[in-house]
């Protein structure tokens, strides 16, 4: 273990904060530290919070944190907001609702921008959750950007996923229907102080009841809450406790861990393979000519990609790292 790693395992928040930034910025040395920390992860309970923009995710995360602190749990929060596609900048405003915990040593809050990553999280989210886990946080809350069908994969990072729904968005419920059943372990009808809360609750209940749940399978409960006034938070945490019991049952935990492992591996592979493929092509002077050929419509991206995938990588592994040629018919001058 290197110095940074040791400090993080000892709970040094400043060292942890710097490592998190380095991971978000893809600094290679940070990944070396994370490799060493990895086997110290797996102890934290991870809670995902998703829902449409403005549905009250940050407010609820703040409330949940207060209750978890009363139970003596330490808490890590990863709050994600969107990066502006125009400037690459971002306003990370989730903290506004959580600042009452700013001076609590038992709470660590990290704001992240999506930086072009789809699916409601930043590319670095899993890395940063792993750092918080290694730091010894008991519970880690992840606030996503907003709910969408793309998120089905990535939310497998969490043991329990809360999906927030707010009243008065009837159409929205229709729109989010498709992927939402797979995401939600618990539905929260937030802003239940507003008109239409009962209707929204009934709609979600109907949706859940139409799903097929085998004997012994978890059926997502539908709870009402007013995060603004802390109404319903205690009941919500009780539901999380029940889901935790379910997850910790024989078989389920292993399944969850393998799913999380799959997401971790696939996400990292995706990034690495693309990077490697593109830089290998470039290093061999192939990228520019291929792009020119494509621009002249003499080559198509499908053929090139097939060649890259079939030859370069498979060959690579078998070949003990010797790069394979990607030159094809279209590469003639």
């Amino acid at each position: 273990m290197n110095a940074a790693g040791r400090e993080i395992l000892a709970g040094n928040t400043r060292a942890a904060a710097r490592l998190m930034r380095d991971l978000d910025d893809e600094i290679p040395a940070a990944i070396r530290t994370l490799k060493r920390l990895y086997r110290h992860t797996g102890r934290a309970y991870i809670l995902g919070v998703t829902g449409a923009p403005g549905s009250g995710k940050s407010t609820l995360v703040n409330r949940i944190t207060t209750h978890l602190r009363k139970r003596g749990k330490s808490v890590g929060i990863v709050a994600i907001d969107p990066t502006s596609p125009f400037s690459g900048g971002a306003i990370l405003g989730d903290r506004i609702r959580m600042q009452q915990h700013a001076l609590d040593e038992g709470v660590f809050i990290k704001s992240l921008a999506t930086r072009g990553h789809l699916g409601g999280l930043s590319r670095s989210t899993i890395d940063i959750v792993n750092v918080m886990d290694a730091m010894g946080k008991d519970v880690i809350l992840i606030e996503t950007v907003g709910v969408g069908q793309d998120e089905v994969e990535i939310v497998k990072v969490a043991h329990t996923n809360l999906v927030l729904v707010v009243p008065g968005l009837g159409d929205d419920i229709q729109a989010i229907k498709a992927g939402i059943l797979e995401i939600a372990d618990i539905f929260v009808i937030n802003k239940s102080d507003r008109d239409g809360a009962d209707k929204a609750k009934r709609e979600i209940e109907t949706m859940v009841s139409m799903g097929i749940f085998k004997e012994g399978k978890w059926k997502p409960p539908v709870l009402s809450a007013v995060a603004a006034t802390d109404e319903g938070t205690v009941e919500l945490l009780e539901a999380v406790d029940r889901h935790q019991e379910y997850i910790y049952q024989e078989g389920n935990l292993l399944r969850y861990r393998r799913e999380k492992a799959r997401v971790e591996l696939v996400e990292i592979l995706k990034a690495r393979l693309i990077e490697k493929a593109v830089s290998d092509l470039d290093a061999h002077g192939l990228l520019d000519p291929l792009l020119t050929e494509m621009a002249k419509k003499r080559l198509d991206p499908y053929t090139i990609s097939e060649k890259v995938v079939d030859h370069s990588f498979a060959f690579h592994l078998l070949n003990g790292g010797k790069p394979a040629s990607v030159k094809g018919r279209g590469n003639r001058r």
Partner: peptide
């Protein structure tokens, strides 16, 4: 907002 538009990641604490 201006800094976001200039490419900065701004953490606003309220």
């Amino acid at each position: 907002r201006a800094l976001r538009d200039a490419g900065v990641e701004v953490i606003y604490t309220g």
